[in-house]
């Protein structure tokens, strides 16, 4: 997985045609249904786009070696978050990993044993994602892990449009690390892009971190705040989408 670091506008993906192609290739029925639900076109104004804020809690940062341990998502539109569609699942990884991460996430192994495996929840997740643009903070986790899991489980390729609240925040606050002289001149580091710090800038309340659904809600609220300015309800979705990160 490559993350585009360049600031120049990447070549846009035509998501509706991409979904048609991927839909035809998909072997798994749930994945196929996801693609067949279609995707928004580039020029769709913000006000018409259905979103789903998604957060995965994982045992680590590497999709190849780490596993998903909980999933949280909540649907939203540009002007409102709908708590009715919120879901939170704790899932059981394939094999036990005595990772320290589980302590951070507050999920004990004994509790995890009683949980369903990720593959049994996948159809429900795909159904919730269908037709929606995914909202995530630092989306390479969600993107990377879902791709890996789906590839392992079904052999299908998994791509989907994402808006990344961290990436939007980085546009508003370009990364700038002053050298010693600049620092002496009073220059400061660009502000932190972490979820909690970004939320503070929009007067959003502090939440307890590391709960998949709380983090999804936190990202959803941040997104509502971010799109007030300089965007409008008529801004085309392509202006917000995360630069396509995967070239196949």
């Amino acid at each position: 997985m490559i993350r585009s670091k360049s600031r120049e506008k990447p070549f846009p993906v035509d998501w509706p045609s991409r979904f048609r192609v991927l839909g035809n290739q998909a072997k798994d029925p749930a994945v196929r249904a996801f693609y067949q639900a279609g995707s928004v076109s580039d020029d769709t104004p913000l006000k018409q786009v259905p979103f789903l804020a998604l957060d995965l809690e994982t045992t680590g940062l590497n999709p190849q070696t780490d596993a998903i341990i909980s999933v949280g998502f909540i649907p939203l539109y540009h002007d409102r978050i709908l708590c009715s569609g919120a879901r939170h699942w704790v899932v059981r990884p394939e094999q036990h990993r005595p990772d320290i991460q589980t302590v951070i996430h507050g999920i004990t192994h004994s509790r995890m044993d009683a949980c369903p495996r990720f593959d049994t929840m996948l159809p429900l997740l795909l159904k919730a994602m269908a037709g929606r643009v995914i909202v995530a903070h630092y989306s390479r986790i969600e993107h990377g892990f879902l791709r890996k899991e789906i590839a392992d489980l079904t052999g299908d390729d998994f791509e989907f449009p994402i808006v990344d609240t961290m990436e939007i925040e980085s546009r508003k606050h370009p990364v700038f690390r002053p050298n010693l002289f600049q620092r002496w001149m009073g220059e400061k580091n660009s502000p932190s892009l972490r979820l909690a710090h970004a939320r503070e800038r929009y007067n959003l309340p502090p939440y307890r971190p590391h709960h998949a659904l709380t983090d999804a809600l936190a990202a959803a609220e941040l997104f509502l705040a971010q799109i007030k300015d300089p965007f409008t309800v008529d801004t085309p979705i392509s202006d917000l989408l995360y630069p396509p990160s995967v070239k196949t």
């Binding site: 409102r80 978050i81 708590c83 929009y202 959803a220 509502l224 705040a225 007030k228």
Partner: peptide, 11 residues
């Protein structure tokens, strides 16, 4: 009550 709630942000 919680599932009925909608959340909005106003500048």
């Amino acid at each position: 009550l919680v599932p009925h709630i909608e959340v909005s942000y106003y500048q």
